[in-house]
Design a protein around this nucleic acid. Structure first.
Length: 272
DNA sequence: ACTGGATCCTGACTGC
DNA sequence: TGCAGTCAGGATCCAG
């Protein structure tokens, strides 16, 4: 369940266990993820010291000084946890990074939509990272930006804000939630949004993500240790997964539709 | 340059 | 129970 808040929660959860530790060895059980794990990754990483645990969008970045960076994406079903070398590996535990302090960073990903890659480049120059839009919580993501980017765009506003080249980290759940908070119909064409409504949407996206990170930080604190815990934020969702339930604002039943083969939930009365 | 659709993969759930 | 069909929190690639 990796939305941006959870990737950030994972980052904060694993960092204290492995920062500034050396890799003792790497165990790779399944190379075939979204893209294959580089064959020589284990030998490259052995004896390198982890200097920084960063995040860009939904990508987790393990920096090893000037040597290079491991790029991890959790896809739809990936998760990370800290365990020990003696913790038995499950069916979908694809890679273990074993550190000198005997802590293991373990990636689990049943659907294999995630990836583990290596780059020597400055990570911002990597193909997957270089074209990403701004971080939603940075000042760079503001009403002027969203308004300018959306002009003449005919795709729906929901599809637009989920496009990682426009802004990173807005997944299917938070797209629906943000549009509800901003009172915008998800079917509306991106280019038809007024400047004030762009501002409203930017504020909503920031607010929703900040709230989710805050909740992830408290309720999913041990997400990296106990796989599969239900997220507390699920109870805070106003429209996502609530088809045919009354709108919390007006009482009209929440509608579920499909956009780009993804479910969208919204209130036909509150969102125009 | 944009848009819509196909696609990678497994598991949970529903209905027959 | 078993089996087929549908649906999942992502995002790239490709054709038009």
């Amino acid at each position: 369940m990796p939305e941006l808040p959870e990737v950030e929660t994972s980052r904060r959860g694993i960092e204290p266990h492995i920062l500034n530790k050396k890799i003792k060895h790497v165990v790779i059980r399944q190379y075939q993820l979204r893209w294959p794990i580089p064959k020589n990754l284990a030998s490259i990483l052995t004896d390198l010291k982890l200097s920084q645990v960063a995040r860009r969008g939904k990508y987790l970045l393990l920096h090893f000084g000037t040597s290079g960076t491991v790029i991890i994406h959790l896809g739809m079903s990936g998760s990370l946890r800290i365990c020990t070398p003696s913790t038995p590996a499950g069916k979908h535990d694809h890679i273990d990074f074993v550190f000198s302090n005997n802590k293991v960073l373990r990636l689990t990903d049943p659907r294999k939509f995630g990836c583990v890659l290596w780059t020597k480049l400055p990570v911002d120059d990597h193909k997957l990272i270089s074209k990403l839009g701004p971080e939603p919580l940075n000042d760079e993501f503001n009403a002027d930006y969203l308004y300018a980017q959306s002009r003449k765009r005919t795709c729906s506003i929901k599809t637009f804000i989920m496009n990682s080249h426009v802004v990173v980290g807005v997944g299917n759940i938070y797209a629906s939630e943000s549009l509800f908070m901003a009172g915008i119909n998800p079917n509306r064409k991106a280019g038809s949004l007024s400047r004030p409504r762009c501002e409203k949407l930017v504020i909503a996206i920031k607010k929703i993500l900040e709230l989710a990170i805050q909740q992830g930080g408290t309720t999913l604190r041990d997400f990296t240790r106990e796989h599969g815990q239900p997220g507390y934020f699920a109870q805070q969702l106003q429209v996502y997964g609530r088809a045919n339930e009354p709108c919390s604002s007006c009482g009209k039943l929440i509608k579920q539709i499909s956009q780009q083969n993804r479910s969208t939930f919204y209130c036909t009365a509150c969102q125009k």
